[in-house]
Measured scan of single mutants.
Amino acid sequence: DHDVVPEDKFQETLHLKEKEGCPQAFHALLSWLLTQDSTAILDFWRVLFKDYNLERYGRLQPILDSFPKDVDLSQPRKGRKPPAVPKALVPPPRLPTKRKASEEARAAAPAALTPRGTASPGSQLKAKPPKKPESSAEQQRLPLGNGIQTMSASVQRAVAMSSGDVPGARGAVEGILIQQVFESGGSKKCIQVGGEFYTPSKFEDSGSGKNKARSSSGPKPLVRAKGAQGAAPGGGEARLGQQGSVPAPLALPSDPQLHQKNEDECAVCRDGGELICCDGCPRAFHLACLSPPLREIPSGTWRCSSCLQATVQEVQPRAEEPRPQEPPVETPLPPGLRSAGEEVRGPPGEPLAGMDTTLVYKHLPAPPSAAPLPGLDSSALHPLLCVGPEGQQNLAPGARCGVCGDGTDVLRCTHCAAAFHWRCHFPAGTSRPGTGLRCRSCSGDVTPAPVEGVLAPSPARLAPGPAKDDTASHEPALHRDDLESLLSEHTFDGILQWAIQSMARPAAPFPS
Rank of each mutant, 00 (worst) to 15 (best):
A288F: 11
T311H: 14
S306W: 09
P322T: 11
E390Q: 10
R480N: 02
S431I: 12
G434C: 07
P511V: 08
F426T: 05
W422L: 10
S291D: 12
V312G: 12
T311K: 12
F510I: 02
C416M: 00
P374S: 13
L384T: 09
N394P: 12
P448N: 01
S443K: 05
P457F: 10
D469M: 03
L287A: 13
G241T: 08
Y361R: 05
E452L: 11
S254D: 05
V246C: 14
E343W: 13
A507V: 11
R461G: 03
G272A: 04
E475C: 08
A417Q: 12
H363A: 06
V387P: 10
P374M: 15
Q325Y: 10
E265W: 12
V403S: 03
C278L: 08
L462C: 09
T435C: 12
E263T: 09
G398W: 13
M503S: 03
P348H: 10
Q501V: 02
P476W: 05
R412E: 04
P348D: 06
E343K: 12
A467T: 12
G429D: 06
C307T: 15
I495V: 07
R345D: 05
E321P: 08
D481V: 03
Q497K: 04
D470R: 05
A371I: 09
D271F: 02
L462V: 11
E263F: 11
T491P: 05
R400G: 07
L275F: 08
A419C: 12
N394E: 12
H474P: 10
K261E: 03
S512A: 01
C266P: 05
A340H: 13
A419L: 06
E343F: 04
C404K: 03
S488G: 05
A248R: 12
A248W: 15
H474S: 09
V446S: 09
C277P: 05
G402E: 04
P509T: 09
C404E: 04
G300D: 08
K362Y: 15
L381T: 12
D409Y: 03
C266R: 05
E484D: 13
P332Y: 15
C289R: 10
P298T: 09
E274T: 10
S369V: 09
L287F: 13
P506A: 04
E314C: 12
D279W: 09
W498P: 01
H479K: 05
N262L: 12
L290S: 10
E489R: 01
D469Y: 14
E274S: 13
E350P: 08
R295M: 11
T358L: 11
A499V: 08
F420M: 03
C401Q: 03
A460F: 12
E489Q: 10
C281K: 10
S369D: 08
C307S: 15
A340G: 10
A319N: 10
S254M: 13
H474F: 15
P450H: 12
E296I: 15
P476V: 12
